[in-house]
Design a protein around this nucleic acid. Structure first.
Lengths: 103, 103
DNA sequence: ATCAAGGTACGACGCAAGTCGTACCTATAG
DNA sequence: CTATAGGTACGACTTGCGTCGTACCTTGAT
């Protein structure tokens, strides 16, 4: 059984925290990549080819998760990441369009 | 004659830079305050009562200006600040609504 | 001519953030 | 059982950012 943990609820999300998360180029790239795929597939953290150490990858995904941008589900073997598209659309309407429009 | 200087053009604006600028609570407050007033008055930097030293205020307004969020006009005696509402609406549609909606 | 008001420039300091390496954990594949 | 793949935890290092104080500049008022 997959295990969820440590995600802020929609109301708990703070715009400032989200902005800070998106201010980093690597994290922005991740979110853009996720937002670009309308099918919203589950992806592993490693599938993003960020070009930094594993522990750094973990760090960035924690920031994204704590900001509420992505959800992480633990399958024991691997951890799958998914964009919280609906939650974001509800809490910060237009934000995702802003991100996908850039670049 | 008022003197303009050092503002990025609409195309030069980067979403990452804007996000980084808005990630700071003081700067976000300034933009929110400016965006809330539809009349878009010119205001002095000091009129925001940020509660930090003068040089810090200067620093924050430079970040806002270089990100393209505000324009500063030098009247010699005082420097007036104005939100670049139209430019922002064109370059990042929906961004200002996002900011004013928060809090 | 002097002073006050509003800002900038520069240097310094402290803390947060991004980065890495190493060690460790968990589950699936041979 | 043992290896391997995907991630986390922790500590260390470095850079960047927010903060301040001081000195200085520019205009308008006295």
């Amino acid at each position: 059984m997959p295990d969820e943990q440590g995600h802020p609820s929609t109301e708990e999300m703070r715009l400032g925290t989200v902005m800070a998360a998106l201010a980093d180029p690597l994290r922005a790239r991740v979110v853009r990549e996720l937002a670009a795929d309308e099918a919203d597939p589950e992806r592993t953290c490693a599938s993003f080819e960020l070009g930094v150490a594993k522990s750094t990858v973990t760090h960035h995904f924690r920031v994204l998760r704590e900001a509420g941008l992505v959800s992480q589900v633990d399958y024991g073997n691997s951890r799958k990441v998914r964009l919280r598209r609906a939650d974001l659309q509800q809490r910060f309407p237009g934000l995702l369009d802003l991100i996908t429009a850039e670049e």
